[in-house]
């Protein structure tokens, strides 16, 4: 595991998109997130890609919903950012990695946000803790004033 992911809230350079070296990436799609229609585009693209991996229909819905929540966080808190969807392979296992990245205000207290039920905005406050529940793996790094990066993965069962 990358050292930068081990520390929640670690101070890291967020400006450059990083490629995920732990997995073989065999397909990639990047969607700029700025408006609420971009949220729909991102989740539909994610469903399309995961369909190609042979995900079950419930896993397709879980993944698309997680993408929707992550993209909405960008629109709501950072105004602008991007979602990168990657089809990945590790030890013969295939999955999808969703990376949501922005240069917004960042999150001061990540642990509190992940406990769920907590929200500074008007949504049900289930955004990030919800995504964590829907996906198999979840990593977050954020720095106040610099931005937030979330990577969530789901593997084919």
């Amino acid at each position: 595991m990358d050292a930068e992911y081990n520390q929640i809230g670690a101070s890291t350079e967020l400006a450059q998109p990083s490629s995920d070296r732990r997995y073989r990436v065999f397909e990639e799609a990047r969607i700029t997130i700025e408006t609420d229609t971009d949220i729909v585009v991102a989740r539909q693209r994610g469903r399309e890609l995961a369909t190609r991996l042979g995900f079950s229909s419930s896993d397709l819905t879980l993944t698309a919903t997680a993408i929707s929540e992550l993209a909405r966080n960008i629109v709501q808190y950072a105004k602008r950012g991007e979602v990168t969807l990657r089809l990945i392979e590790r030890n013969g296992r295939e999955g999808i990695a969703v990376e949501a990245r922005d240069q917004g205000p960042g999150i001061a207290d990540i642990r509190r946000v992940l406990e769920g039920g907590y929200s500074t905005s008007r949504s049900l406050g289930l955004g990030l803790s919800g995504v964590k529940r829907l996906m198999d793996e979840f990593e977050i790094e954020s720095k106040v004033g610099q931005g937030t990066k979330v990577v969530a993965r789901k593997w084919r069962k």
Partner: peptide, 13 residues
């Protein structure tokens, strides 16, 4: 739909 209901319950919605 069934998959949507499953996801909503996972999210606590």
């Amino acid at each position: 739909q069934p998959d949507v209901a499953f996801t909503m319950v996972q999210l606590g919605l």
